[in-house]
Amino acid sequence: MPVRRSDSLNALLAAISVPALLLASACTTPAAPAPAASTAAAQPATPPAATPATTATSTSTATPASTGSSGASGTTSAAAAPAKVSANNATAAQLQAAFEAAKIPNAANWVREVQEYRPYPTNDPTLAKLRQNLVKYNPAPGVVDAIVATLSLP
């Protein structure tokens, strides 16, 4: 039965060589653009382009009203500090409002990503899980820090 045996051998070789070629092509991706480390200064990056008109969820009444904005108090109110919203519980509208207040570009898209990786452990105030996942998108320097700065736990 030499013919049958060679048929089987050919089938096996085909089964191994095709995925091997696929794997090889997957592993030889061209050089990606220079990655921008997200560990830059904590200030939010200015948007590189005008915020696109993404069709996000409603921009309803979720403007994060920060405390102590009613004057008369002599505290050093950090006017630029964005109000924080819950990383685990805030609605999409609340997240988007917070991100837009912090001038984070593509706020609606970032809202989607923040929601995707929920829940975030409440014993990790640095939101390392979120940072780890957002860095995969190769964001501009400061964007991840700006996002995290708008979030609180739980």
């Binding site: 653009p33 590189p48 190769n138």
Partner: peptide, 15 residues
């Protein structure tokens, strides 16, 4: 493709 606008490099030139 959908995530491209978030990219530091491609977000600038995507359009």
């Amino acid at each position: 493709y959908d995530a491209a606008p978030l990219d530091a490099h491609y977000g600038l030139i995507w359009d």
